[in-house]
Simulated scan of single mutants.
Amino acid sequence: MKTKICSAILALMALPFAAQSGAVGINTTTPQATLDINGNLKIRQAPTAASTTGYQILAVNQNTGGDFEVSRLNPQLIADLATQGGTTGVAASVYSARKTAGVTLVSATVFPTGFRSVNFVNAERTVGSTAVFSDADNTYTVPSTGVYAIGFSFRYGTGLQATLLANSPGVGIVRTRNTTSTVIDSRPFSGANLVVLNLTISEGSVNSLYPLQAGDKISFGLTGSTLLDATILGTSTSSFYIYKVSN
């Protein structure tokens, strides 16, 4: 029995083990925390929690110096990180705006022929960060590559005109990538002939999923709009939303 006890003591003494000033080190003689393990940590069993309420998550801080300190992490922070919005709970890609008056259409040399963008500005946003939208060119800048849900609607005046509109105007979304602009979706206003009266239903919308790259600029506007009445444009309404749904 004495031989077994001595052998166990000698085995423990052979481990690089230190206890200094309340700090315990395993495989290190200079522990930097209350328990400092220089090696792999294995846990064979752990109970399963029914919910995250009242629990903290243990996470490893991967320091560049190799000191992988373990810290507590609130599960809500994981949810916030998943939406890429830090602690706000709003994803960095989410942005929407609504314009109810003062609509004008802006031309740019890079735009495809016949397209002019609506003069949205950050002050008209309903949700989102000002960092992803530029008042200088009325564009949304894609923060990260992935698939985005985009919706855009426009109503010209009251939404119903007593004559057919020239140039067949409609709504459109333009993507500018590396100074090249492309209409990625569009839809013309609808015309209807009611026996003796030609009418244009002068409102439309587009919404779908679009693959985009980081740095793409998105413009929302009208196609075939060169002959629209400026006075009616001023009383028009328009809105859009955009957010990332997948990598």
Rank of each mutant, 00 (worst) to 15 (best):
K2P: 04
A131T: 13
A49G: 03
G146N: 14
Y241S: 11
T48R: 01
T87R: 11
Q45T: 02
D80H: 11
F154S: 04
F133I: 11
T48W: 01
K217I: 05
L233K: 02
V195G: 09
N38Y: 05
A59K: 10
T158V: 08
D36H: 09
F111T: 08
F189M: 05
N198Y: 06
S190N: 12
I173L: 02
N193E: 10
Q32V: 14
G66Q: 12
P188S: 08
I5S: 12
S190V: 05
T182Y: 01
N27F: 00
T29H: 10
Q161L: 12
T113D: 15
N207V: 10
T235Y: 10
G22K: 00
L222I: 06
V174P: 07
V171K: 14
A46D: 03
K217M: 10
A14H: 04
R177E: 04
I232F: 06
A33T: 00
A33Q: 13
L197P: 00
N63Q: 12
S190R: 11
N138M: 05
Y95Q: 10
S7D: 14
T139R: 07
T28S: 10
R44F: 05
T139F: 10
P75A: 05
T100P: 02
A18Q: 11
Y55I: 09
S93R: 01
A14Q: 13
R72D: 14
A11G: 03
T145Q: 03
S153I: 12
V142R: 03
R177I: 06
Q76I: 13
V174M: 02
G102A: 14
T223E: 14
K4R: 12
T231H: 03
G157A: 10
I57F: 05
P16K: 13
D216G: 06
K4G: 07
D216S: 05
V103E: 06
R187T: 14
V24D: 00
V90M: 05
S186D: 06
T237S: 14
A33W: 03
S153V: 13
G66A: 08
D185E: 15
T28R: 01
S96F: 02
Q161F: 09
V90K: 05
G25Q: 09
L233F: 07
T223W: 08
N198T: 07
G221A: 07
A23F: 12
V24Y: 07
D67P: 01
T64Y: 00
R187E: 15
M1D: 12
Q56M: 07
I184T: 02
N167E: 10
A33M: 03
A19G: 10
N40L: 00
A11C: 12
F68C: 14
S134P: 04
Y210C: 01
V24K: 01
S239K: 00
N138I: 09
V195F: 13
A108N: 13
I201T: 10
V60K: 11
A79V: 06
R155K: 12
L12Y: 13
A79M: 09
T235K: 02
G89S: 08
E69W: 04
S153T: 07
